[in-house]
Design a protein around this nucleic acid. Structure first.
Lengths: 153, 153
DNA sequence: CTATATAGGACCGTTCAAGTCGTATATTTG
DNA sequence: CAAATATACGACTTGAACGGTCCTATATAG
């Protein structure tokens, strides 16, 4: 429980891979799938979804494939997960939902909604660029050393 | 996705309810279930599990039931979720696991493991007491005002 | 002894993630 | 043009996990 779906995992891995190969104009779903040993057809659908939500740009035909629609720094893990898995909520009953099935009995939701927000905040603070090139001495590495994101719950 | 199971939800609600009724020596699973409209048998098994993990103390027979084994301040949401749903990990491949199926292809896991730790940290910082009595002017309310927990990612 | 509880195993239905298949369409290249 | 390569997309299958019920055994208060 509290798991990312494999699709979201695959999506993040694929975007990271694309971010690591900025020289190539486009990489096919098969290219990426082979690189990670992911089912190609499944990854294709994931990338199609990311294209529809505007995170990727696609090009059909030979030598076609996918490329990041924006700079890797401008794409957050949150966006990717949201695009693939849809909105996530820790609790069954959301704060936004007008009425939970157990209303008003479910008094637990308000505090947990804040946990939810915290998680979202963390995911928003992580970019595809952070996932890639973690070994280089850049912002991501600096974050490693002394902690960049500070959240208040 | 990234959802708590209903069982964990129920467990948190039940503990909160117990924390709100410190005067009664014990509340039966049925009492709590009725209070929230939760299936009694299901809740019973959840409470049994929490008893086995030491978060609750049980007493069979008439006027029996469950009571918190510790002060509500000393029981974290993390413990409850862990007891009910087992260890949770954001990614399929854990940092602890010696080899993920995709090793070494899954290069995404390290950054996400830190997200995982962050979430765990947030859940550890929330006690059953925080869930209950949120309206009273205590630590929980103070936390509302200016933020208590500060995490570094 | 009886009513009320916990304890716990067996079982079932539904849902959903994960993956496959098939087909239509676009595009490059020979 | 034709063939090869890709995206686009809907339908389908399979397996596991969640949510929930049922049944039985045991403990205990009155």
């Amino acid at each position: 429980m509290l798991k990312l779906t494999k699709k979201a995992d695959y999506g993040l891995m694929a975007l990271k891979y694309l971010a690591e190969h900025p020289e190539t104009p486009a990489l096919s779903a098969k290219d990426v799938a082979d690189a990670y040993g992911i089912p190609a057809q499944l990854l294709a659908k994931i990338l199609q979804r990311l294209t529809k939500t505007g995170l990727l740009r696609s090009h059909a035909g030979m030598n076609g494939g996918y490329a990041l629609a924006r700079d890797a720094r401008q794409i957050s893990a949150y966006e990717v997960i949201l695009a693939i898995d849809g909105p996530f909520f820790i609790t069954s009953c959301t704060r936004g939902a007008k009425s939970c099935e157990l209303t008003p009995s479910c008094t637990i939701k308000e505090p947990l909604a804040r946990v939810n927000d915290t998680i979202a905040g963390v995911l928003k603070s992580i970019s595809i660029h952070d996932l890639a090139d973690r070994e280089h001495g850049d912002a991501a590495a600096a974050r490693d050393r002394q902690g960049l994101v500070t959240l208040t719950v």
